[in-house]
Structure formats: structure tokens, C-alpha cells
């Protein structure tokens, strides 16, 4: 009595061995529910979409070399704030996620997590050729090639790297799409979550994310 059996690690109430590093699927730490499917129809969608388009918050998260192009956007030369675009310091307060350039599998896991923490409506702008078809990393063992298999992309900005002007043009396109009610990638993601999950699990071999990263 009272003596631990040798070689047997005691378990936490959640079934996780003591001393092992916290696992993201630990149900005591994370919410486990799945999101409800979203519908397109909203009341007074026109007014809501106008407000959403005029005030975009770009999440401060650079995934690849393209994030070097995001810095100048805030400076006096390009000044994205004149379109109402500001930086979102956390996923919770952001509405636009920019995938800036190549996306390695390791980063993809973090990106999925960040994307699912953003509140709806949310949009993805993919920057550079790497997100479209691999770009110069077409034969790399660690970067994904077709981004829209893993995340719903609303606007692609091609180039290697695109200039900040091109990015601003992409933002203007996104704003027009939001105003017309066409930028509905977030609805697609929520409604086809199983398809996206299957693709994500195919490349992320050590899948340790919760059911949905609330």
C-alpha cells in the first residue's frame, strides 16, 4: 500500500501521465465542441458587410518571407490605415489572416490553430506563388503547396514576392468581395470541416490539436 509500482507512471484525472508535457487534446484544458454549420443568410447583410469591409484587422502573424512586405504597409509610403485596415494583435481581435509566402507543415499546425481562434467572419489572404502552387519550394519536403486544401482562401496575391502595392490591391479586392457578400470562405470552412480536417491530418503526421481550436 502506498508504494508505487515500479515503471508505472501515475495518471492525472484526465488520463494523462504525470510529468508528460501538456497535450493539446487534454480534455480538461481545452473545449472539445465542434462548431455549428453557418448559414449564408443574415439579416441586413448589406449593412453588416459594409461595416466589416471598412474595418479589417490583419493578424500580426508572418509565416514566411512575405511578412517582410507587411511591415511597409503601415508606414507613410503605403499607409494601409487609410482604408481602415489596422493590425490585429491577437487572433481574437483579427479578421484577416495573411499567409505570407511559403508555409511549412510545422507552421501550418500553428496557422490552423490561430485561424480557428479567430471569430467569424474571418478571411484568408494568401500571398506569393508558394501558396498557390509551391513556387520555388515546389520540391521541398516540408512546405505545403496548395493552400486552399487546408484553409479556405478568399484572395490570392501572386508574385514572388508581391510588392506592397499588390497587397493593397488584394485588400481592395477583398473589401469589394465582402461588400458584395462573396467572401464566404469562413462559411465553407465551417460547413466542410471534415474535408479540411482530412487534408490537414494527411500532412500533419503528429496531429495533437483538439477537435476544434476554440
Amino acid at each position: 500500500m502506498g508504494v508505487e509500482e515500479k515503471g508505472k507512471v501515475p495518471l492525472l484525472p484526465s488520463g494523462v501521465p504525470v510529468g508528460s508535457k501538456p497535450h493539446a487534446t487534454d480534455s480538461t484544458l481545452f473545449a472539445q465542441g465542434r462548431p455549428k454549420p453557418l448559414s449564408l443568410d443574415e439579416s441586413v447583410a448589406f449593412i453588416k458587410n459594409w461595416f466589416r469591409a471598412q474595418s479589417l484587422n490583419v493578424m500580426a502573424y508572418g509565416t514566411g518571407c512575405g511578412s517582410i512586405e507587411l511591415g511597409p504597409l503601415g508606414t507613410s509610403r503605403f499607409d494601409m490605415e487609410r482604408f481602415g485596415i489596422t493590425g490585429g494583435p491577437t487572433p481574437r481581435q483579427s479578421s484577416v489572416l495573411i499567409i505570407s509566402g511559403y508555409l511549412s507543415v510545422k507552421t501550418l499546425k500553428r496557422v490552423i490553430r490561430s485561424y480557428e481562434q479567430m471569430p467569424n467572419p474571418r478571411w484568408v489572404v494568401a500571398l506569393g506563388s508558394c501558396t498557390i502552387n509551391g513556387g520555388m519550394y515546389w520540391d521541398s519536403y516540408s512546405t505545403i503547396k496548395i493552400l486552399d486544401q487546408y484553409l479556405p482562401v478568399d484572395v490570392y496575391v501572386n508574385g514572388c514576392m508581391p510588392r506592397p502595392e499588390a497587397l493593397i490591391a488584394g485588400f481592395k479586392d477583398l473589401m469589394d468581395m465582402i461588400k458584395r457578400g462573396e467572401a464566404n470562405g469562413y462559411i465553407e470552412y465551417q460547413n466542410n470541416l471534415d474535408w479540411y480536417r482530412a487534408n490537414q491530418r494527411k500532412v500533419i503526421k503528429d496531429w495533437n490539436l483538439p477537435e476544434y481550436s476554440w
Binding site: S55, T75, E81, G84
Partner: peptide, 26 residues
């Protein structure tokens, strides 16, 4: 002061409206 154009002066109202029209709150 920083040599930028800057947002319109009514940007605060737009941000407020946009935040009220977020579809889910956690």
C-alpha cells in the same frame, strides 16, 4: 504627424459597428 494619410475621422464608428457585427463571441 507621421506623414501618412490616416483613417477617416469616422473610423471609430465603423470599428464599433464592425465589432458588433462579429458573428460569434467566445
Amino acid at each position: 504627424i507621421q506623414g501618412r494619410v490616416g483613417p477617416p475621422v469616422y473610423q471609430g464608428f465603423i470599428d464599433l459597428g464592425k465589432n458588433f457585427f462579429v458573428r460569434d463571441n467566445i
